[in-house]
Design a protein around this nucleic acid. Structure first.
Length: 417
RNA sequence: GUGGUCGUAGCUCAACGGUAGAGCUUCGGUUUGUGGUGCCGACGGUUGUGGGUUCGAGUCCCAUCGACCACCCCA
């Protein structure tokens, strides 16, 4: 028989218990912060009709950068590469039933058929939070505040990251004043997005607009534009929500076409990590692609890989701890049934307890518990069975305390906080 | 998709073109109701895979798969 490889598929990850512990830590913080702002959790299938992405983005991206296939019923299907079209589809489908504004969040996995690199895989997990049905600056501020509070909830200080904000309308008005034709605006915006990485930005821009004078005028205008009345109002609202690390940066454009107003990205202030941690913006026209009325919306997304990298770089990752709180070491075979009953009682008191029925010596069982990072051990043998009192051992300190069965749970919760 | 660097035990790495090794991990023992340190031992490999050159290939050449880096792209 041919041996099957134990390696995971290209560009995807296995989450062993230690890895999943980190994922869960990230997800729990995402859930908590979203819910503190009144956001509701939603979900959808990982499969979507290919047509939905085709309507919004180019044929080339669908063909080359998504996992798309034909199902047995000849339908074109795509593994979702992002959440925004799905939210838009769900909202548009029930726009007469949903009370607006809607505050929705979801943490899901996404697939993109691209060459894997550090921080960029073929499958990744991402939080999406969207505020749908309001067009005001207050909504933009709220979305940024959620993103801000999320990073803060991981233990980061404001000096550890900065929120770079711009406004598509601001840049568009510069284009308009300079007489740039509407067809050129999207390509220029995309070029602007890459400006920080380009050495010959002015040359490339000249090639694109076909006029060196115009290119230099644009650069000059963009560089001289430091803010707008709208962005200053945004800054004021953010200050009231405890956000003090917003900066205006007209280089932020978010590459793609569907953003219509405020756009932002969050960066690590450590120059060693120059990748954007998360980003978002306002997309007021996207929902109209499903027919019906146009509904304003603003949202952001944060990926698990960049989140983990950020926490690692700032030494904010928690140490692994299993859910298991106590292991019962069965001293001899005759005590097994007693141990099983004790475990059952403890579980009814909400204690996570595993029973070690390996038959090995108590010392070996304790060593196993220690390797598993289980914090407490109770040996169950003849002595415990006859007295009804149990010795709870704390492995980190070696301290032991003897208790009757009905006080074990109480003591554990006290010790574990 | 294009270009580059690299693939040796579960992990980190040795080995001049000449018999594939060490540390850590895992498992067992250290004589049996209490772990972490010692000490002893075992498991573990068609050197990513497939070809080629050579008396002989982990080492050189080609292909392929994978990881990483720079592009592309970043919804």
């Amino acid at each position: 028989m041919k041996k099957v490889s134990t390696e995971s598929y290209k560009g995807v990850r296995d989450f062993y218990p230690e890895d999943q512990f980190i994922q869960r830590y990230l997800f729990e913080h995402m859930e908590r912060v979203c819910e503190l702002f009144g956001y509701e959790e939603y979900n959808a299938s990982i499969l979507e009709p290919t047509e939905m992405y085709r309507a919004k983005t180019s044929e080339e991206i669908i063909n080359e950068e998504t996992y798309s296939f034909i199902d047995r019923g000849d339908r074109e299907v795509t593994l979702r590469p992002e959440m925004t079209p799905t939210v838009a589809r769900m909202i548009a489908g029930k726009s007469r039933e949903i009370p607006f504004p809607a505050r929705w969040y979801s943490i899901q996995n996404f697939f993109r058929y691209q060459k894997p690199q550090h921080g960029r895989l073929r499958e990744f997990w991402q939080l999406n939070a969207d505020l749908i049905g309001v067009s005001g600056v207050e909504a933009d501020a709220e979305i940024i505040a959620v993103a801000h509070d999320l990073v803060r909830s991981f233990g980061a200080e404001e000096r550890d990251f900065e929120i770079r904000v711009s406004d598509r309308r601001l840049v568009d008005s510069i284009f308009e004043a300079a007489g740039v034709t509407p067809e050129l605006r999207a390509p220029i915006t995309r070029l602007l997005d890459r400006r920080a990485k380009l050495e010959n930005f002015a040359d490339e821009l000249t090639t694109l607009v076909g006029d060196k004078g115009l290119a230099l005028t644009l650069i000059d205008q963009i560089d001289r534009t430091t803010s707008s009345a709208y962005l200053e109002e945004l800054r004021l609202l953010l200050a009231q929500m405890g956000v003090g690390n917003m900066i205006v940066d007209t280089k932020i454009t978010r590459g793609f076409d569907y953003y219509t107003g405020m756009v932002f990205e969050v960066f690590d202030t450590d120059p060693a990590n120059r990748r954007s941690m998360m980003g978002g913006g306002r997309y007021d026209n996207l929902l109209s692609m499903f027919g019906g009325e146009s509904i304003p919306a603003v949202g952001f997304a944060m990926g698990d890989v960049v989140a983990k990298d950020f926490l690692e770089a700032h030494n904010l990752l928690p140490a692994y701890a299993p859910a298991t709180e106590v292991m019962l070491a069965v001293v001899e075979k005759d005590s097994l049934s007693h141990a099983l009953r004790l475990a059952h009682d403890l579980r009814r008191e909400d204690v996570c307890v595993s029973v070690n029925f390996s038959g090995k010596r108590v010392g070996d069982q304790i060593r196993h518990a220690d390797k598993m990072k289980i914090p407490f051990v109770i040996a169950v043998g003849t002595e415990e069975r006859t007295t009804g009192r149990y010795t709870l051992k704390t492995l980190s300190t070696g301290v032991e305390i003897t208790l009757p069965a009905d006080r074990i749970a109480e003591h554990l919760f006290g010790a574990l906080g």
